[in-house]
């Protein structure tokens, strides 16, 4: 018999399967805003694959990768679009700086979408990333 952590709800399993199959960098967080998966495209952006780091608490992943405000200060957990997506069940969009494993910084736009499958609230969120477009064009 295999040892296992608590079974993930089906909607998170399907979300992970989707993220695995696309080349837009994306994170998957659970209902506690813990990072439970990111895809290869996100791994390329961050400089480390998810397999190397595994599940991370919100404190761990924000202190490792950011995001950081323009002044270099870390963004408060409560201000993160992921927190808002999970807690309020609302989408959120923001521009941040993140730090990759090699210390390089990158400005990104991120959109977080809550995953809601029951009346009890969201069971997590998907967060997609794009390099920040400085041309001033509206995002699609």
């Amino acid at each position: 018999m295999e040892r296992m952590a608590a079974q993930k709800p089906l909607e998170l399993i399907l979300a992970r399967n989707l993220l695995t199959s696309i080349s837009t960098p994306a994170f998957l967080v659970d209902q506690d805003a813990a990072l439970v998966f990111y895809n290869e495209a996100a791994g390329a952006l961050l400089g480390r694959s998810f397999e190397d780091v595994g599940r991370m608490s919100p404190e761990d992943w924000t202190s490792t990768y950011g995001p950081f405000k323009a002044n270099g200060q870390p963004v408060e957990l409560d201000e993160l679009p992921t927190t808002r997506a999970v807690r309020d069940g609302r989408p959120a969009h923001a521009v941040f700086t993140i730090r990759s494993a090699n210390g390089g910084k990158q400005e990104i736009e991120s959109s977080a979408f809550p995953i809601v499958a029951s009346e009890e609230g969201s069971s997590g969120a998907m967060i997609f990333f794009w390099p920040h477009d400085r041309s001033g064009r509206a995002s699609p």
Binding site: M4, A5, A6, I13, R16, N17, L18, T20
Partner: peptide
Amino acid sequence: LGTVLADNEPEWISGYDLAR
């Protein structure tokens, strides 16, 4: 669907807990 059953972690396999 969308995964490799042979090496995915159990917690990420649909129906795993139900059938174990």
